[in-house]
C-alpha cells in the first residue's frame, strides 16, 4: 500500500500524453476495457487487448516497478484454477482477464489522481459516498505516516523478530491498535476543522 503514495505522485507529476488526457475520457476508456473483459471470450482477442494495454503502459512512461502491481491479483486467480479441473484454455482465459483488468486499472491510477476520479464519480454517485471516498483517501496518507513511524520504532527496538513469533504478532497487533487510536483522534480533529470550514456532508473538489 506504500505504493499508493508513489502512484499518486506519478499521477500528479507525470507528463505523458495519457497523463494530460481528461480523467473523464480515461474513465470511459477503462469502462470500454471492462466491457471487453466481461463480454469477450476468445484468447486471441484477450492477447490483443493485453498487448494494446502494455503498449499504452510503456508509452505513458510509467516506471517498471509499478508494472509488478498488475501481477498481484494473479495470487487469487490461482485459487480459481481448481474450479476448472486444470483446463488450460480456461486458465489462460482467466489469467488474461485478470491481467487486462489489473493493467487497465493501474494504468488509470498511475496517470489520473484519485481525487479527479472521485470527482467524476461524484457526478453519478450519492455525495455521501463520494465524501466517504475523499475522507478515506485522505486518511490513508495520515495513517501511512503513523504506520511508518510505528514500524520504524518496532524495528529499531527489535519488536519484529522471526525467532519470537508470538511477541512479534503481539507487537504488530499493538501497532494496529495504536494506528486505530491515532486514527480516531485524527478523525475527531479532522471533523472539527471541517466544521470550521463549513462542512455539510459534502466535499467540493475543484481539481486544483
Amino acid at each position: 500500500m506504500i505504493q499508493l503514495s508513489y502512484l499518486d505522485y506519478l499521477a500528479v507529476e507525470g507528463k505523458s500524453r495519457l497523463h494530460r488526457l481528461s480523467p473523464k475520457k480515461k474513465i470511459i476508456g477503462m469502462a470500454v476495457v471492462l466491457l471487453f473483459i466481461v463480454t469477450m471470450r476468445n484468447l486471441p482477442g484477450f492477447l490483443l487487448l493485453y498487448a494494446l494495454l502494455l503498449a499504452i503502459f510503456f508509452l505513458s512512461r510509467i516506471p517498471l516497478k509499478i508494472f509488478s502491481l498488475t501481477f498481484y491479483p494473479l495470487i487469487f486467480a490461482v485459487l480459481f484454477i481448481f474450479i476448472s479441473g486444470f483446463q488450460i484454455g480456461f486458465i489462460l482465459l482467466i489469467f488474461l482477464k485478470v491481467l487486462c483488468g489489473s493493467t487497465g486499472v493501474v494504468l488509470l491510477l498511475a496517470t489520473t489522481p484519485y481525487p479527479s476520479i472521485f470527482r467524476i464519480l461524484g457526478k453519478v454517485l450519492p455525495s455521501l459516498f463520494v465524501t466517504a471516498l475523499f475522507l478515506t483517501y485522505r486518511s490513508i496518507f495520515i495513517l501511512l505516516n503513523v504506520l511508518e513511524e510505528t514500524q520504524s520504532a518496532l524495528y529499531l527496538r527489535g519488536g519484529l523478530q522471526w525467532r519470537h513469533p508470538w511477541r512479534s504478532l503481539t507487537n504488530i497487533s499493538n501497532a494496529f491498535g495504536h494506528l486505530i487510536i491515532k486514527g480516531i483522534d485524527a478523525s475527531e480533529k479532522m471533523y472539527e476543522s471541517m466544521l470550521i470550514r463549513g462542512f455539510k456532508n459534502k466535499i467540493h473538489y475543484r481539481g486544483e
Binding site: 475523499f134 478515506t136 495513517l143 486505530i180 486514527g183 475527531e188 471533523y191
Partner: peptide, 26 residues
C-alpha cells in the same frame, strides 16, 4: 455527518490491513 471522518479512518485502516499479504495462504 459527525462520524464520516471516523468512517474514513476505519476504511483506511482496513485498506492498510489488506495491503499486508500473507502470500503462502493468499
Amino acid at each position: 455527518s459527525r462520524r464520516l471522518p471516523l468512517l474514513g479512518m476505519m476504511a483506511a485502516a482496513m485498506i492498510l490491513g489488506a495491503s499486508v499479504e500473507i502470500v503462502p495462504i493468499a
